[in-house]
Nucleic acid binder design. Structure first.
Lengths: 346, 346
DNA sequence: AACTTTTCTGTAAACGATTGCAGACATGAA
DNA sequence: TTCATGTCTGCAATCGTTTACAGAAAAGTT
């Protein structure tokens, strides 16, 4: 560590004094304004480099109303899809000079509201959000929209029209693919463990599931569909009910992989052979689903693609916002394709 | 969404004008200053509530030099330990009114430098960092220390004295426990797949490994120790070398679970029975290590505990910094205990 | 009534960077 | 020499909040 005195140049006016220039000139150099003498520019740059000056983002943000920061709200970091998406977003934005403030709602609507407000307080340039599975009312994002901060939803998104960009996986098709796969294998008694229908992704997956069944003229048994938070414990409860008395299902479709894994483990415990006596399909391609024995068929959502599209869209919004003071257009959602990955559980 | 005109009160002076008060009074209300008339306070609070005013953090941060924001640098979000630690930190700080800026270095020293600089530019109140496995020089954190921003390292930390809080798992004991366990089971030919020795955690785990071997009077075979980034591909390469010709090892100890899993899968492929012919121990208790067949013995690091201690320490530093302008004391590292989890692979 | 004390509120100057405007200087043209 | 043009630099106001200080009003004391 060098001596304090020498390096403690952390405001533009201190630089100015040392170089016998005005703060204005320093600022112009730092912002690549054209009308600065090349010699002056070089002198300033050299000095800035030497003393390791770093622009105070708060001061410049206050003046310019730009923070070069994007806010991100996710339900849980630990969910595989989000981990991947966040990583992609972070890398993408960092490459363009933006940084990220990340908040986790823990699937609590209250915390989500709080986070939205905090992000507005920080005057981030844009907000990306994957909502709680219980968020039905999105008005806590209004304050952002009203102040021309673009909002972009992904994964769990508003179902009513809302003036924000929307990016989501093709959940309807995912549900349809999973169910069709089981039906094509000859399954007739398919149970479905769904998340709560307050959330678009579970609505869509469920709709895909029903579409496939009706197409194959299989009646939908209401008592074989479960709606609850997709935890391992809930999955075990559902299994307990399903295998309390015959007829037993010959396939279980789960709306996420945590559930599928819990189902598989329960089946192993009570001695049901998978896939011979019971086939299982999950959703999301969590790394665990590929590693367990037997490995579980699942739906790949391509989180890296989702992340890339988000980055592209957010950069577009940021540029657009910079050029025109127009409000965000309410365009069609962008839908990222999904794919079935067949494994040993079917 | 309500009409713009009515709600667009986003500065203290607009509030002041509307209420026929001075900005100073509004500010005092917002900051719970004692000397404000109760009636005035209630009137202001009600209005603030009604129009949904939110303090501009940049302006207040500029004035007070406090941002209520903590910066966090991690190598990769996707590493299980970090996912857990981040979650704990985020929840803990949020409960105390702080928010987090998270950056990911991707194990690149260059990006890490960049992130440290950016966090300083944002004038965060404190920085928490788990470094790259290649970071040997920590001088890019100097700028923070010099400006009285407390720094707290965890997991991958400086080995030379550095004026920052240090919190780490007991890696020496972890390495020792893992190796001792194998030795007690009678293993005589233990190979060890380590991370690069530029990083404290791998140095310590390695030291623990050697200590256990020498205690059991087993010579350390240099050609059975590998030092490289702990990826699945590298693990397979190591296995390829180890099983090219006899004598084969009777146990493999891996410095993380990704490697242990790759080792197990390779062993399955070439028909080596685990644990009969080969025992495997991993490190970190990644969820996958418990779910694979056979499940893998590993070292639990208690990431949630690490996170809790970090939160407690960081809050302590923030308070302390607020009270006295003293520099951070260079205290002893805090060491979080680890535990061996025995599973089917041994 | 004259005074101190207490309680509240306003004034104005910061914090550090940016930027419209104008001034200084040099260069070229007539 | 005089004027016009172009290039560079500085002045000063601004962003929104905080806070030392002072002033005003109310309450209490003698």
């Amino acid at each position: 560590m060098k001596s304090q005195k020498q390096t403690k140049k952390n405001s533009i006016q201190e630089l100015a004094k040392a170089l016998r220039l005005s703060p204005a000139t320093i600022s112009r150099v730092l912002n690549n304004h054209p009308h600065v003498n090349t010699a002056t520019r070089n002198r300033v740059m050299a000095f800035v480099e030497k003393v390791g000056y770093t622009r105070n983002i708060m001061a410049s943000g206050l003046r310019t109303n730009k923070t070069n920061t994007v806010g991100l709200i996710v339900p849980r970091f630990s969910m595989f899809v989000h981990t991947e998406v966040i990583t992609t977003i972070q890398n993408g934005l960092h490459a363009h000079g933006y940084h990220l403030i990340i908040g986790q709602s823990n699937d609590s609507v209250e915390i989500e509201k709080d986070l939205a407000r905090t992000l507005y307080a920080s005057r981030v340039d844009a907000v990306i959000a994957a909502c709680t599975m219980f968020t039905k009312n999105f008005s806590h994002f209004d304050v952002l929209i009203e102040n021309n901060i673009p909002v972009l939803f992904y994964d769990r998104v508003p179902m009513q029209p809302y003036p924000a960009r929307i990016i989501k996986g093709d959940d309807f098709r995912g549900g349809y693919l999973a169910a069709s796969h089981l039906l094509q294998l000859g399954c007739k008694r398919i149970a479905y463990i769904s998340g709560p229908l307050s959330c678009n992704i579970y609505i869509d997956r469920h709709a895909g599931f029903e579409k496939a069944l009706t197409q194959h003229k299989i009646p939908v048994r209401k008592d074989w569909i479960f709606y609850h938070e997709l935890t391992a414990e809930n999955a075990r409860k559902a299994m307990h009910r399903l295998f309390a008395k015959p007829p037993y299902p010959d396939a279980i479709m789960a709306a996420n992989d945590v559930t599928a894994i819990a189902v598989l483990e329960y089946a192993k415990e009570i001695g049901i052979k998978v896939p011979q006596a019971l086939r299982i399909v999950g959703y999301s391609n969590d790394p665990r689903s590929g590693i367990i024995t037997p490995s579980i068929t699942t739906i790949e959502q391509f989180p890296v693609n989702i992340g890339k599209v988000i980055v592209a869209e957010v950069l577009k919004l940021l540029k657009q916002e910079h050029e025109t003071e127009g409000t965000i257009t309410e365009s069609d959602p962008i839908i990222i394709p999904v794919e079935l990955i067949r494994r040993m559980s079917t």
